[in-house]
Computed example of a mutant assay.
Amino acid sequence: MTTVSSPLAGRVLPLEDVPDPVFADALVGPGGAVDPVRVPLEALAPLDGIVVSLLAHTFTVVDTAGRAVLTHLGIDTVQLAGEGFEPLVGKGDRVRRGQPLVRWDPAAVAASGRSPVCPVIALEASAADLTGLRTGRDVRAGDVLFSWN
C-alpha cells in the first residue's frame, strides 16, 4: 500500500468537480483534487520517490513500487508558460514526502481567470485501487489524501 499525501492545504474535492473534463472524467486516472488556500505556497511531494516529470505547473513522482502520482497545479495553467511557478527540484531528483517541489500562488492563478484547483492523480490505477479519499474536508499540506492498495 502507498499513502498519498496532499501536496497542498485546502478543501478536498471529488474529481468530477474539477473544471476540466480530462480530469473530471478520470481519463488520466483516479484520485482527488484540492482547492488550495489562496495564498502563495509550496506544492509538496505527495510521496517518497523520484521526480519523473516536471513542468512549472505539474509534476509526477514515482515511488519504489512504481506507483506514479501526478499533481497538476491549477487548470489551464500551461497557458501561463511557467509564469508564477518556481520549480524547486529537477527532473530525476529523489524527493521525500512533504518536500517542497514548486512554489506558486493560487490567488494569482485565479486572478488570471483560471481555476487553481489541483488534481492529484494515481496514474495507471483503477478507482478500486484507492481507499480513504474523503471529499468535502479541509486538509493541511502533508495530510493523508488517499491510500493506493
Rank of each mutant, 00 (worst) to 15 (best):
L145I: 06
G136W: 04
F23R: 08
K91G: 14
P87K: 09
L44D: 01
W104C: 00
L27N: 04
K91F: 09
G136R: 11
E86R: 12
A43G: 01
A68C: 09
L47M: 11
F146P: 00
P106N: 04
L27Q: 06
V18T: 01
L123D: 03
A24L: 03
L15V: 12
L80R: 09
L27E: 13
V37I: 11
L73R: 04
I75E: 02
G92R: 04
D48K: 05
G90V: 07
F146W: 08
P30Y: 11
F59V: 04
V95Y: 02
A43K: 00
G136C: 05
E124C: 11
V109F: 11
L15E: 02
V12H: 03
L130D: 07
P106F: 01
G98E: 02
R11Q: 14
S6A: 12
G66D: 04
G132S: 01
V95P: 08
D93K: 03
P116F: 11
L145N: 07
A107F: 02
A26F: 11
P87G: 01
W104E: 06
L80Q: 10
G32S: 03
L15M: 14
G49A: 10
P87Y: 03
V69S: 00
D48N: 14
T71K: 04
T71L: 09
L54Y: 00
V95H: 09
L8F: 05
P7E: 02
V28A: 06
L101M: 09
A68R: 09
D129Q: 07
G92N: 09
S6Q: 10
G82N: 05
G113I: 03
W148P: 06
L41E: 15
D143C: 00
V22K: 08
R137L: 06
D143K: 10
V51K: 02
L8I: 01
V22E: 07
L44M: 02
V61A: 03
L88K: 03
A128D: 12
V12R: 05
T131L: 12
P46Y: 00
L123S: 08
H72S: 04
A81F: 15
C118S: 14
L41N: 12
R137F: 08
P30D: 07
Q99V: 02
Q79T: 15
R103D: 05
D35F: 14
P21K: 13
V12S: 07
A9P: 08
P30Q: 04
L73K: 00
S126N: 15
A108N: 05
A111C: 14
A127R: 13
S115G: 08
A128S: 15
S126H: 14
R134W: 11
I50C: 13
R97D: 05
A65C: 13
R67W: 04
A125N: 03
E42K: 12
P87V: 01
V28R: 06
A125G: 13
V39T: 13
D20P: 07
P106C: 02
R97G: 09
D35M: 13
G90S: 15
R134M: 10
C118F: 08
P87M: 06
